[in-house]
Design a protein around this nucleic acid. Structure first.
Length: 210
DNA sequence: ACATTAAGTGATT
DNA sequence: AATCACTTAATGT
């Protein structure tokens, strides 16, 4: 059995399905920072995350990025669900947030399992629902929250996805993820530090309030 | 020791 | 909140 499959998905799927996943799924290790799926790619596989986290983002016509949400272990990329219904291209880019282990499932199988396994069906529907909620939240965040609140939410989301309150990034990266400038990030982080919400180090941030 | 990269700051729009 | 210009601090070679 693929390592980690049992521990992460056994409570979700029946044994027969686990065995099928084990047989058909392709285990992959993705190093931090590598692009798992890019905008415009045709999607042939659906990833199940065993460990690690993935950052999902969108890009505008100038190549500027904006992070939508993070996907954690035990979850899947809901965009693939939409995409593999029809033969559409990916609308998003998925980048490994940390070194990540995934199992790739061919989309034909995932459609087949929709009919044969009840647990699979509810898993897909539920994660689809969760993503939808997160997307709405992302819209709210961008539309209604000020930059300082957005930044703090970003840090919390990131800490949550990585299961680690010690975040390893630079101000520059955060600025790119939130689509703002590095100077603004530095200033707002400084403010958060004086409010005792975080501690700043070079190339890393320790989150205090959780 | 020097170059490079990350982060802090004031001023201006 | 963005941009510029500049400084300071940490790190790599």
């Amino acid at each position: 059995m693929i390592d980690g499959l049992q521990s992460n998905y056994a409570y979700l799927f029946e044994d027969a399905l686990l065995n099928e996943i084990n047989e058909i799924g392709i285990y992959k290790e993705v190093p931090e920072g590598s692009i798992i799926m890019d905008i415009g790619d045709y999607i042939k596989n659906m990833p199940l995350i065993i460990s690690g986290a993935i950052k999902v983002m969108r890009e505008d016509e100038h190549g500027d990025e904006l992070v939508l949400y993070f996907v954690e272990q035990g979850d899947t990329c809901a965009m693939t669900i939409t995409c593999c219904m029809g033969e559409t291209k990916s609308e998003i880019r998925a980048v490994a947030e940390t070194d990540t282990q995934i199992i790739m499932i061919p989309i034909q199988k995932m459609q087949e399992w929709m009919h044969t396994y009840k647990s699979w069906q509810s898993f897909i529907l539920q994660s689809y629902h969760e993503r939808m909620t997160e997307l709405l939240e992302a819209i709210d965040t961008i539309a209604f929250l000020k930059m300082d609140e957005r930044l703090f939410k970003y840090l919390k989301d990131k800490a949550m996805a990585n299961r680690d309150d010690h975040i390893k990034t630079t101000h520059k990266e955060i600025a790119q993820d939130l689509h703002t400038s590095r100077v603004v990030v530095s200033r707002l982080l400084k403010k958060l530090e004086t409010e005792n919400k975080i501690i700043l180090h070079r190339s890393s941030i320790k989150l205090l309030d959780l």
